[in-house]
Design a protein around this nucleic acid. Structure first.
Lengths: 199, 199
DNA sequence: GTCTATACGGTGATAGAC
DNA sequence: GTCTATCACCGTATAGAC
């Protein structure tokens, strides 16, 4: 339906995750998308800020949904996170170590530049944190302790993604995955997953 | 001595940590530095790439040195890291949540753009990791286990810095500091610091 | 060493024709 | 809806005078 609009958003996502906000030009986006150049300001009267904001939210929603799906495959949050991060490590390798969404880089760049984009990034981070927190609660943690663990997990994840990108290895992500198995020992449930080997 | 050269490097550091690599212009740097504009390509014939690379290495060396100093104040690596991160949290607040060096943002941006800058970032990260690893070894960890823990700590630190910047709170950093006290229980030494209250 | 001038290409954004 | 033309400004980098 909204092929042109969505095409532009998707192209923006692809370019942003590699180059970031200021380095990605509008002409580059329309060229990458294959969409008609004249439609840019018709669909996005807010200009570059609007396109980037929407791209962050769009990619963020997909990420959050995928995360929730993956984490729901295992009852135990530790096992679930382990599997999720290992899958992410594989994806990052396939993509030549450019992480699978424009969130991190745009968030850092826009923090002092665009309030609108920065707000979009905050929203996505809050959603991710909520997904993690919900999963931690199942673990038997209190609400506040779960929030704490969610923040820590998110920080470790973001940092590992950065290190993987810089070093061009998925090792930091895999190290994190292995470590999580041991470092959330507050878990009151067993390590037995809901479905361990049928996936 | 090298007042002009150093002035440009320092100005580059200040601007890079707020805006990043592509968003920071050469004219902006010379203006910020107050240095003569005509000297830019005299001191830095390699252009923008050279300036940014040197800025990253310069700020990185200071960071590594400061880190080594702070960590050496306490024998126990956990206590040392706790104090270091808490101090960092205070600094980040003072600086309006723009972290104290251009490393993170430039590393992420330059990963797919400039090999030279990317290499400089890798070097600094490797140095930081080495400092952490050395400190972990004192903890009684094996060499490989110390390397693992250093990677994890660095990732958590980077991620917390990003979250602090995005949310404009030092909470993620403080949460990390508190957590570290409990999550490196492999420590074989006591928690008693070398000098706890005389600083 | 430092200056000015300039080359050359890019940027985001707008106006008006179709 | 899409195009082209155009705006004013920006970027990096170089050349040559002083």
């Amino acid at each position: 339906m909204t092929t042109v609009r969505e095409g532009i958003i998707l192209a923006a996502c692809r370019l942003l995750e590699k180059q970031g906000y200021p380095a990605t030009g509008l002409s580059e986006i329309v060229k990458e998308s294959g969409s008609p150049k004249g439609s840019l300001y018709y669909y996005f009267p807010g200009g570059k800020e609007q396109i980037v904001s929407e791209a962050v939210l769009f990619a963020g929603n997909i990420l959050v949904e995928r995360m929730r799906d993956e984490l729901s495959k295992y009852d135990n949050p530790i096992q679930a996170l382990y599997e999720y991060i290992m899958k992410l490590a594989g994806k990052v390798e396939e993509k030549n170590f450019f992480a699978s969404n424009p969130l991190t880089i745009v968030a850092v760049e826009a923090a002092g530049t665009s309030e609108r984009i920065s707000q979009a990034c905050q929203d996505v981070y809050a959603q991710i944190q909520e997904v993690l927190q919900e999963k931690m609660v199942c673990c038997g943690l209190s609400e506040t302790e779960a929030a704490r663990q969610a923040t820590l997990t998110l920080a470790s994840l973001e940092g590992s993604i950065i290190l993987s990108r810089v070093y061009r290895t998925s090792d930091p992500l895999r190290t994190l995955a292995e470590h999580l198995k041991d470092s959330l020992p507050q878990s009151k449930t067993s390590l037995t997953p809901q479905a361990e080997d049928d996936r």
